[in-house]
Amino acid sequence: MLEHGDINLLAIAQLAFTLSTLKQMNYEPILVSSGAVGVGMKILNLNTRPDTIAKQQAVAAIGQSELIKIYNQRFNSYHQLSAQVLLTRDVIDFPESRENVINTLDELIQMGIIPIVNENDSVSVDELDHQTKFGDNDQLSAIVATLAQADCLIMLSDIDGFYSDNPHTNPDATLFSHIPTISKELESSAGGAGSEFGTGGMASKLKAAKRMLDVDSHMVLASGKNPSIIFDILKGQDIGTLFSKTDLNIKESDK
């Protein structure tokens, strides 16, 4: 979404082009996306997020269908099929349904189709003992990556990588190029759960990175301003922050 609430059609088009090209290069990309509520708010001309769960879920239902339609249109222009996969946390927590998710992703990939994974916001809740939300999109992307046994999770964000401090408020903050392990010091740098920088921000991204490191995989955090940056990341260029137990970058041969 753009700052004024419009759908960032240019970014979606660039993303569709990038992933379609990667598919032609024999990569097996999976896209984890969000934005259903934001798109729904735009369609309904809402300036503020609804304050009840029921209204939020209704807005998400409206936005989700529009969002996937836009993705399908953009992918179709590159003769690439895509498919929507909606998930809730409880589906992942139960072994049988978890296996079904894995099988679905595997089958779509084998069919040459790019899965577009979203949290099912129209039914997800996080109340008392009925928790079906993933928490945020960072966690969803890491969970999907581990389910799919992905070689690398590329997380495109509104920040260039992981910094020693909030770069928006501290001009002396330095960018980490490579992080092999998640230490207490790094978690402290990310900010607490109650901070603007920590909530749904770097603290969440560190948690996602830890998921990938725990399964001996990799994660790259980089700016999503231009999604074609993925090509440079896969060529091994020093872009953003690489979370990996080794200092090896993700090479183009790792598909």
Rank of each mutant, 00 (worst) to 15 (best):
A173T: 05
D129H: 11
G192N: 10
A145I: 04
Q131A: 05
N170K: 09
K184V: 03
Y163G: 07
E187A: 11
M155N: 13
G135W: 08
I179S: 08
P167C: 09
F134W: 10
L105P: 05
L156Q: 08
D160C: 07
Q110E: 14
S188R: 08
H178C: 06
T104D: 04
V125G: 01
S189V: 04
M155V: 06
T132I: 10
Q149D: 13
E187H: 07
F134P: 07
G192Q: 10
D158S: 12
D126A: 11
T181V: 13
S124L: 04
A190G: 14
G191S: 02
A148C: 03
P171I: 06
L175H: 05
I154Q: 12
L153N: 04
S189C: 15
D106P: 02
L105S: 07
S177G: 00
M111C: 13
T104W: 10
N166C: 05
L147W: 00
S122F: 00
A145T: 10
L156V: 10
D160A: 15
I109E: 09
N120I: 06
S122D: 08
E119T: 06
L175W: 08
H130G: 00
N103F: 07
E187W: 01
D136V: 08
V144I: 07
D121Y: 07
S157T: 15
N166M: 09
E187S: 10
F176D: 01
F176R: 05
G194M: 11
G135A: 05
A193P: 07
V144L: 06
Q139L: 13
P167S: 07
G194C: 03
I179Q: 01
N170G: 11
F176A: 12
I113L: 00
M155E: 06
F134R: 02
T146I: 03
D126P: 00
I179C: 05
Y163T: 02
L186M: 10
D121R: 06
N120Q: 02
E119D: 03
G191P: 09
S164Q: 03
L105R: 12
A193C: 01
A145H: 05
A150N: 09
F134I: 03
S141P: 01
H130P: 01
L186W: 03
E185N: 13
I116W: 03
N103Q: 15
K133R: 15
M155D: 03
I102C: 09
N137G: 06
S157A: 14
I154K: 07
S122H: 02
T181M: 08
A145R: 00
D136K: 05
G194E: 14
V125M: 04
G112W: 11
T169L: 14
F134C: 04
N166T: 03
I182T: 02
Q139Y: 13
S124F: 08
L140R: 02
N170E: 08
D121H: 01
D126K: 09
T169D: 12
V117R: 04
Q110A: 13
